[in-house]
Amino acid sequence: MTTFANALASAAVVVTVGAVVVLWRHRLRSIVLALAVQGVALAVTAALLAGHEHDRVLFAVALLVLAVKAVVIPGLLVRVVAATPGARESDPLVNVPASLVVAGLLTLAAFIAARPIVALVGGPTGRLVPLGLATVLIGFFVMVARRRALSQVVGLLLVDNGIALVAFLVTSGVPVIVELGSSLDVLFGVVVLRVLLARLTAAGFSDLDQLRSLHD
């Protein structure tokens, strides 16, 4: 029982730490790598829950998560990064030390805000719900504080991963049809954003605030 709880806690912490790493690193390749690691940790969380509940369908969901969030989406993003080798998040709107402090505060806020859910769910899974919420908030903060268009996409995916983590922990695994639907939605969104990113890069935009010149 404790092994399961420890393993689950480790996987969930990796998900949140992955989000913090995205805030910390400058190189876009590292950011995408952190996202991929986070996807693996999410799949591991689902697999652990599947093993614990003896639920084969949930195991299929874990495989799906692994395929989409650890392989396909990071793969798509890596191809964007490869188009501009050595690209960096050079001049974030909020610098890295300040961002890390904000991430800490957001995690604190997540723990405070999630208290009712923790009380409701209870047990080893319930205690981890604040980590999912913290991932959501940090992902949102990435979108606000980072200039690169690619960082925005990664921020959105962090939000999605955080929501997925909360969903796994609260419901002990979501039905496969729901997970399939949301994964496909995200995949579709990433494909669209990838095309958009390629077009933006081709047009000479990489900083989203340059788009302000389109404002009337």
Binding site: L93, M143, V144, A145, R147, L208, L211, R212, L214, H215
Partner: peptide, 10 residues
């Protein structure tokens, strides 16, 4: 609403 995506997200 000055057109900055970051401001809207914020």
């Amino acid at each position: 609403a000055n057109g900055s995506v970051h401001r809207y997200l914020a």
